[in-house]
């Protein structure tokens, strides 16, 4: 089985400081669901940045979709980034675009025509319960609404891997479960999902999900599954 992502002894250092991530090795398999946990400052966001190709490691090897992305030339990276959906911790919505346009952005970047993107974007807005707010700009949306738009934007392109940094941090528990159900639905369609979270309760929502725990920049593998394909997931309804 070809892995979605493979990290081998990866280290990350910002500038001349000490290593933020040290000796990170794991393999993510297609169709798997992973939770990335750990205390604040453990390096979760840095690890996710390496996953969504926003950073290159200081050392070690990373293979995404079977390709070495550490030595890959810049011009090849966009093609790989389009296969990755990202939910940023701070949402990173484009402030002067409406909710509709923010969600449509990945499709427009991928060259989908205006006619073809209207349906999927409207459907996504409806699913996250923001059809009425399609024309609202981020500043007019609550924190939870912004987060839903950010998630919709990450999943609209049906990515092969979804990377979410604290995606339920600003929503009520009911919405958090709904969002996780969306991730689970995507996961059932074959998308590999990696969710960084503090919320220990979320871990129980998706049976069969693997847990990666980061502490002081080092990865522990409590389920022992990171080097081996996990068993098929059984998702709770």
């Amino acid at each position: 089985m070809q892995s979605v992502a493979e990290f081998d002894n990866v280290g990350l250092r910002y500038g001349t400081g000490s290593e933020t991530l040290t000796d990170i090795s794991f393999t993510l398999f297609p169709g798997s669901f992973y939770f990335l946990t750990g205390p604040s400052g453990a390096g979760k966001t840095s690890l996710l940045k390496l996953l969504y190709l926003s950073l290159r490691p200081s050392r070690g090897a990373i293979r995404m979709f079977g390709h070495d992305t550490v030595t890959m030339t810049r011009d090849r990276l966009p093609g790989f980034r389009r296969r990755i959906g990202v939910v940023f911790q701070d949402f990173r919505l484009v402030p002067h675009l409406t909710a509709f346009d923010n969600i449509a952005l990945p499709l427009r970047i991928a060259g989908i025509t205006e006619k073809d993107l209207q349906g999927p974007v409207s459907e996504m807005l409806s699913w996250i319960g923001l059809s009425e707010r399609a024309e609202a700009r981020p500043a007019m949306l609550s924190g939870g609404e912004q987060q839903r738009v950010a998630i919709a934007r990450a999943v609209i392109g049906r990515p092969e891997i979804l990377v979410a940094d604290e995606p339920t941090g600003n929503v009520d528990p009911e919405m958090a479960v709904r969002l996780l159900q969306l991730f689970a639905a995507l996961n059932r369609l074959g998308t590999t999902v990696v969710v960084a979270t503090h919320d220990i309760h979320l871990l129980q929502e998706i049976e069969g999900a693997q847990m990666m725990r980061l502490e002081k920049g080092r990865l522990s593998d409590p389920t022992g599954s990171l080097k081996h394909p996990p068993r098929p997931l059984i998702l709770k309804n």
């Binding site: 966009p78 093609g79 980034r81 389009r82 990202v86 952005l105 990945p106 970047i109």
Partner: peptide
């Protein structure tokens, strides 16, 4: 943001 979404 566009860059992270695969914009060239």
């Amino acid at each position: 943001i566009m860059h992270m979404m695969g914009s060239t």
